[in-house]
């Protein structure tokens, strides 16, 4: 499911153009990165490392937030990150002009070609910083922007436009809400939930799925990204309601391109002795159909 332009990951140095705080502990980092920007698709990710340091040693994975054009061609990559530990702390200190080392595009994407039945009402559920893959995806699905366009042929991947897209975006409290205007600008229906009730509805984002299913226009497909317990809950709910569901997983990654075998998750596999097998999230994921994951073995 990867476009002609987007299939081989490359390594590229990029200069930081800006690093802007957009919510509590949350920043949007813009990197001058024309080659990766031209190839990457919504749902894919890049590995990011501050060049020349051995501590922290490893690069960190971040989803594509969006690409930025210059004179009609992709020029920069935006990522949006939440400060968690030493790696993201170091990123938050960047002020512009520093050189970063990146590789990508990495991983697969959410399915761009939902069937007509599945596409009647796509519900996107974003938990916390798990919102990052979705703004670009919505733009692509709605035909507002194209990604991974082949330089010579102008060909891109085929997408089926869903008839309706709803987004549920849940955070701990209002100060963590990031990029809300970007979601709203696409024209989709946005439902915010907060655990403390400081914005939108109080509770977990899963309630958006619960409530939407009882309306006259229930969801016909679910895409979700967020913390693992949330994804487990969403998968269970979607399966109870018989709604096809895809989840984007976050696991610890050392390389991001398939050589270290650190990022594995348990996937059902009838051919293997124990009925499941570990698969590399960076290569076979990060997006998986929810029912293919062996949740009890997570």
């Amino acid at each position: 499911m990867i476009s002609q332009a987007g299939d081989v990951a490359i390594q590229e140095s990029g200069v930081v153009m800006e690093n802007v705080r957009i919510a509590r502990g949350t920043y949007r980092l813009r990197i001058d990165l024309p080659n990766i920007a031209a190839r990457i698709l919504p749902g894919q990710f890049v590995m990011v490392r501050i060049a020349g340091r051995t501590d922290p040693l490893l690069a960190r994975p971040f989803a594509l937030y969006d690409t930025v054009d210059e004179a009609g061609t992709p020029r920069a990559v935006d990522i949006v990150y939440l400060v968690m530990g030493r790696g993201t702390q170091a990123l938050s200190a960047l002020s512009g002009g520093e050189t970063l080392e990146l590789w990508g595009p990495l991983g697969n994407t959410f399915p761009p070609e939902l069937t007509e039945d599945q596409g009647r009402h796509l519900l996107i559920l974003a938990g916390g910083i798990g919102q990052t893959p979705f703004v670009a995806l919505i733009k692509e699905l709605l035909g507002l922007r194209r990604y991974g366009i082949h330089q010579e042929t102008g060909a891109g991947r085929v997408v089926n436009r869903p008839r309706k897209i709803t987004v549920g975006y849940g955070v701990r409290s209002a100060e963590f809400l990031a990029g809300v205007d970007d979601f709203r600008a696409t024209g989709i229906d946005l439902h915010i939930t907060t655990e403390d009730g400081s914005a939108g509805q109080r509770g977990f984002v899963t309630r958006v799925l619960d409530e939407a299913s009882t309306t006259s226009d229930p969801p016909t497909a679910v895409f979700a990204c967020g913390p693992e317990p949330m994804l487990g809950a969403v998968s269970t709910l979607a399966s109870e309601k018989g709604i096809p569901c895809w989840v984007s997983l976050e696991t610890k990654m050392a390389c991001g391109y398939g050589v270290c075998f650190s990022c594995v998750c348990p996937v059902n596999d009838v051919a293997s002795e124990q009925g499941w097998d570990f698969r590399r999230v960076c290569i076979e994921g990060p997006v998986f159909p929810a029912e293919t994951i062996s949740w009890p073995n997570m």
Binding site: T54, P56, F261, S262, V264, F278
Partner: peptide, 25 residues
């Protein structure tokens, strides 16, 4: 024989290094 390898976390970053226990997956 095929080996499923160890459960996760299989790696952790340390000062200028990393620990791994992939388990010959």
């Amino acid at each position: 024989e095929p080996r499923i390898g160890n459960r996760t976390p299989r790696i952790v970053e340390t000062a200028s290094g990393m620990l791994n226990a992939i388990g010959l997956d």
